[in-house]
Nucleic acid binder design. Sequence first.
DNA 1: CCCGGATTGCAACGGAGCGCAACAGCCCGG
DNA 2: CCGGGCTGTTGCGCTCCGTTGCAATCCGGG
Lengths: 238, 238
Amino acid sequence: MEPAPHILVVDDDREIRDLLSRFLEKQGMRVTAARDAREARKLWPLGRYHLVVLDLMMPGEPGLDFARWLRSQSEVPIVILTAMGEETDRIVGLELGADDYVAKPFNPRELLARIRAVLRRANGEGPSKEPPAKVIRFAGWTLEPARRRLLNPDGAEVSLTGGEYELLQVLVERPNRVLTRDMLMDILRGRQAGPFDRAIDVAVSRLRRKLEDDGRNPTLIKTVRGGGYVLAATVERG
Amino acid sequence: MEPAPHILVVDDDREIRDLLSRFLEKQGMRVTAARDAREARKLWPLGRYHLVVLDLMMPGEPGLDFARWLRSQSEVPIVILTAMGEETDRIVGLELGADDYVAKPFNPRELLARIRAVLRRANGEGPSKEPPAKVIRFAGWTLEPARRRLLNPDGAEVSLTGGEYELLQVLVERPNRVLTRDMLMDILRGRQAGPFDRAIDVAVSRLRRKLEDDGRNPTLIKTVRGGGYVLAATVERG
DNA sequence: CCCGGATTGCAACGGAGCGCAACAGCCCGG
DNA sequence: CCGGGCTGTTGCGCTCCGTTGCAATCCGGG
């Protein structure tokens, strides 16, 4: 077993700091929290952190500047928290070498999963050493995880609801695989699908409309009768 | 005939181990069960397993660590069992390269279907590590697995239903080989064909029409009286 | 060559699965 | 408390595909 990873959480929101401290510690990690960039700068030399969770939207010094400073000091992995709808240029913080990003409001479990994934990459253990894709292209469409948005083949933004985005993301992560309603229900809602549950069908239907995919004769999200759904497209990451 | 697949089931729940052993054995598979990762590690070198069914939520060593170890040892396909809402493990599990995923509580028939699908994929790709063909051509027709669609010799898309597509794919993967109704039924529906079962005949009939192949005098999908069906064409992969 | 059972082709039918419009409940910010 | 956006539920129509029935074809025996 490896030593417990030490995480530095930088967020001005006390609730989030507490939540993350409790949650991550329960998962066997050590957590130190800072309320802003100034405090984080002071804490930095005092500990050997394995990873920094950084909220970009903070009073005082912009999180982005702190991230840049951090990068100049060390190779420590950074996971960025962003609020939805923040300015473009802020999220370009990825260019700066952040290792992953999670949109607020976030699911702690998801953040944990991403933290683990980043740590594993950093340790060189994991099979997936590529950084998270900045854009994901399929059948002319472009998904930008950093901004949680979808661009149509003309490059225009198509606004997705949270649920639609998540569904699409799940599909795009496993193209050409049949995903059962059970799997989708579990992944997207964390609950079990009842036998007459049509929630997934309706969600797919709504997503198809945004993707201009005719449900009666779909080309992108195909139906597998009695099985589930498949994204029928080649997905390209970059 | 291929040898009976040997499955290693790793789950701490005795009921599930027993259920799966009985069920999968009735389906003609060999099953070995382990109650935890430690036991599984010991069993691993003693058998040649074709697939591992792994519960991630186990006391002792986390299933995830075992999966990682397994991956470092071999390319054996892994099907993961997870409890509902264990988002973390699921995401990481998929990143690790698990081949499929079934949510608990699961339907044994569904698990069986997934196991078969994974085994088929693993066998199809075989030891030759060639990437799956992007297009498959036969007698002027083109099958595009990535998009799950069929193009006629003029290059126009012919819309197939899910069942038609699956049938065609099976035929194309085994050209010039007689496929019995039993085999087709097993592969396509995961069940056995009754003695008066005409489902396959009708499915072939429907597919022939889409392929413009006259059933009374077929040139593409030939009938072998008392035997089954053959795709009579040279198949070209690229 | 003719007959009859076996086998297959396929049209027609119907149950089950699915698409999706419409409705309703929920959440959240004002 | 209201209003708007989001998502689950419901209902109806359509599609898919298994079943059934009958005609066509095959084939061995007389």
